[in-house]
Each structure stands twice: as C-alpha cells, then as structure tokens.
Amino acid sequence: MGKKNAKAGSLESSDLLVVIEEKEAGEKLEIVMNSIVEKQYGDRIIEIAHEIAALKGMDNVRILIQDRGALDYAIRARIETAIERYERGV
C-alpha cells in the first residue's frame, strides 16, 4: 500500500501549495519550505507550519510548502486544510 498524502492550495501568485506526506514509522516531523519571499518571510512561514503541526499533533509527516507570497491567514488555511485532507485520507 502506498504512503498517505494530501495537498491544498495552488502555485498562483499570493497563494501557496502545501503537500503532506506520510513518513516511515518512527521518523520525525520534517518541514520543507521554499518561497519567493524567503529572505523576508521564510522564518515566519516555518514558524506557522510548526505551530499548526504541533497543534494538530502531526509528527510523522513531511510538510512541503511552496509559497508564492501568501499572507499569514492563507498560509494557515492551506496548511490546516492539507492536514484535514490527510487525516480524512482524501
């Protein structure tokens, strides 16, 4: 059986694409991020991702974020939605 995964968002300007992938049993949470505003807001995006992952108890996944300059609320919404889809197995 393949690994679980889910995604939310898009690569449109001012949006982001979030992909969540299941990792091997026992592996830790991993956040991979790239952004067109990485220099200015990269730390902030990683911080939000960690915060939501902790809140939702996601610890055995890889969260891939491709950001195209989204605002914080969009980043939160996309990550939360991706996690929900992941958990429902959509």
Binding site: S14, I36, R68, G69, L71
Partner: peptide, 14 residues
C-alpha cells in the same frame, strides 16, 4: 508636470 506611480500596496506579500 504630473508623475503618478500606480502600484498594488502588496506585491506577492511584499
């Protein structure tokens, strides 16, 4: 005589 700059307040978050 009149120079106008037009711009979105944010461009891809910046």
């Amino acid at each position: 005589k009149l120079t106008i700059i037009v711009a979105n307040l944010l461009r891809a978050r910046l």
